[in-house]
Nucleic acid binder design. Structure first.
Lengths: 212, 212
DNA sequence: CCAGAAGCGGAACAACATGACCCGCTTGGT
DNA sequence: ACCAAGCGGGTCATGTTGTTCCGCTTCTGG
């Protein structure tokens, strides 16, 4: 019973044992390559990592984009699940902070997911899945804001942006980010997101856009 | 007296008046294209924007990379000047915050600069200029930390990263950033960078790496 | 006003990248 | 041991991009 998009894509009768093994390798290799290279992966990257030829790749997969879309759909859906589960946490801040960390960690650890959520995967038609995620996050943010554990002087949409930016865009000023740079960025951002800030006297920025 | 890299690159005897006009258009077009398209600009982008042919471009410019490098060198140097000037501000926080805004604004308004500072411009050999900028920023950060107006529990290097991340990486979760999204992100980040935070009880992240 | 040097546009070239296909050989499973 | 299913990777078609070239046009000094 193909629950996942990947399983659905690769549904097949009774392939030979070696063929099955290759498909699994291929999927694993694609995930890896997607993590490292983002949406710029090529068929050759994948085939090489999987240790198979291009012919093998195209035997089971209709096209590169279909494969990428299937994998990313599953990844995004998993993140949506996490957001939904965070809503079960009784403490609104804890639920939010928990998800924030998951969200940033997942994005930071997969360039492919980062690209997709940054709107660079238009050709893959992921919008419906992204919209579901968006709704879940909005609920989480709104709940925390209503409980007054998250700044309410910002539009809810500013929060996903703030979180997303925890991922370093590459080097900076000649400095190379360490693998957990996102963690320290997130710490700063979460601190900045708590309400009742009385500091930052002459900072820039005015209140955000109208809500919803 | 060519003070700027661009002027040096384009130094020439006494070009015909129309040729001079074209060179100016070309430089302006390159700046524009670099802002919008980042380091992915092509010669055709530039020529088209300038309203000239490719031949005209190559008449005065040895190569695309040389042109990009010259323009970015000037831009980075200007930013270094701003950092140096911020050191003149008597108030350490004000100097820092002032520069932070300039820094983020410039980066947000030019994809080319953003790319270069994110380490994507290796082929252009900008490291020496970036190193100068890095030194100026370090001074600014250190001064603010010593004055206890900026969290001292972070390595100074974390601060440029935190600032750089104010620039949205594109869309997020299907949301499209407005042109001044960076301003709201920066606000959150600057708030998170003030010292004496007593909030964020159960947040993740441990203290940063050893300094220097 | 005119000759000729300076300049121009953009077609053409070479190098490369990339998605997709095909076909002769190999191999698993009965 | 047989043979269909499967495989590898050479090959093709296409698109992109930096750069050059050359026939025509436009300035400008006298």
């Amino acid at each position: 019973m193909p629950e996942s998009a990947v399983a659905a894509l690769l549904a097949q009768g009774q392939p030979r044992a070696d063929a099955q093994r290759n498909v699994e390798r291929l999927v694993a290799a694609t995930r890896e390559a997607l993590d490292e290279l983002g949406l710029a992966v090529t068929t050759r990257d994948i085939a090489q990592r999987a240790g198979v030829g291009l012919g093998t790749l195209y035997r089971r997969v209709p096209s590169l984009d279909a494969l990428l879309a299937a994998i990313l759909t599953d990844t995004i859906d998993e993140m949506t699940d996490r957001a939904a589960r965070a809503l079960d946490s009784p403490d609104p801040w804890q639920g939010f902070a928990e998800f924030a960390e998951t969200y940033v960690q997942l994005r930071a650890s997969s360039c492919g997911l980062h690209d997709a959520l940054s709107g660079r995967g238009e050709r893959l038609d992921l919008e419906p899945r992204i919209t579901r995620l968006q709704r879940a996050v909005r609920q989480l943010v709104r709940r925390a804001q209503k409980a007054n554990v998250l700044r309410a002087d910002l539009d809810w949409r500013d929060i996903p942006f703030a979180l997303a930016t925890a991922i370093p865009p590459g080097h900076t000023i000649g400095l190379v980010p360490s693998g957990d740079q996102w963690r320290r960025n997130l710490r700063i951002i979460l601190d900045g997101l708590r309400p009742a800030r009385s500091l930052a006297p002459e900072g820039p920025a005015e209140p955000a856009a109208p809500s919803d």
